[in-house]
Amino acid sequence: MTVEPILAVDGLVKHFTVKTARGVRAYKNTVQAVSNVSFSVRPGETLGLVGESGSGKTTVGRCILRLIEPTAGSVRFQGEELVGMRAERLRELRRDMQIVFQDPYASLDPRLTVGTSIAEPLEVQRIPGDHRARVKELLELVGLSPDHSRRFPHEFSGGQRQRIGIARALASNPKLLVLDEPVSALDVSIQAGVVNLLADLQDQLGLAYVFIAHDLSVVRHVSHNVAVMYLGKLVEVATAETLYERASHPYTRALLSAIPVPDPGVERGRRRIMLEGDVPSPIDPPSGCRFRTRCPKAQDHCAVEEPALVDRGQGHPVACHFPD
C-alpha cells in the first residue's frame, strides 16, 4: 500500500445532452453516463472495469484520457490533475497514457502502412531518435516481424491488427494503458495470444492497465482488482479473487452466475440468479439504488436512499443496503 497510485479517479461524472423527439417537438435530455465514480490504479497493476452495455465503462475510459471532457470530478495522473489542465501540458502527458481500442479493423488507417501508423505517435509527440528502428523494435515487442512495417492493415488478421494497435499505443513509452475491450472482437484461440502478450508487456515494462471488458472470465484472468459498474455507478470493487469468490453486491452475483462456463458438469449443477428485464435508461435512472428495479433483494428503502460505496472493513467496497 506504500506505492502511490499512478491514476486516481475521484467523483468522476459525465453527462451527455441528447435530443429526443416527441411528436414534432425536440426535447433536451441528460444521459447520466457516469455518476460519481472513484478508483485508483497503481503502477504495474491491472484494474478490470466490467459492466453491461450502457454501464458507462467506456465513458470512464475516455474521461481518464480526457478524450471526452468529464462533467465533474477529478482525474489525477502521476499526481497531476488532468481535469482543467491546459492543452499543451495534456498533450505532453498523453505520452505516458495511451489507449487501445476494441475494433482493430476500425482503429487503423487502411491507407497507412503499419510502420507509418506505429510511428505516428512518435511524430505527434516529437519524440527524438530513429523512428524506423523504434518501429521495428515495437513490432518485435508485440510478437510480429520487423518486416511487417511496410505492409498495410488489410494484410493482417484480427489478432495481428490488435497487436499493431498495441504497438502503436506503446510507441511513446507510456506508463498507463486504457484497454477498451481489447480482445472481444477476436476468436478465442487468437484472444489467448493477445491476453498473454498484454501480461508479458506488463511484466517487462511495469505498465498499469485499465482493462475495460464485458467478458468476466477474461477480466478475472488479467486483473488484480475489479470494479463492477451498473448504470453509471460503481457497485462493487474488490481484488479479482475476492470478487469471484465472495461477491457481495446482488448485481455482481447475478452477473457472475449469468456467465456461461465452458464446463457442462458445472453449468448444469449451477443455481442461477435470473435477472428480470433489461438495464433501465440512463436518461431517467431509477431513484435510490439504480439496480433496485431488477434486484431480487430490493426493498422499499432501496427506492428512497441511494446506497453509498462503503468499505465494511475488508478492503472490498460495496454499494448496497443489503449486501451478502
Partner: peptide
C-alpha cells in the same frame, strides 16, 4: 479451443498458433 479459454488456476492461456 478449450485450452485457450481462461479458467481458474490457469496462469497462462494457450493460444492456437497461426490463423
Amino acid at each position: 479451443l478449450l485450452r485457450s479459454l481462461p479458467s481458474v488456476g490457469r496462469d497462462r492461456l494457450v493460444p492456437i498458433p497461426g490463423s
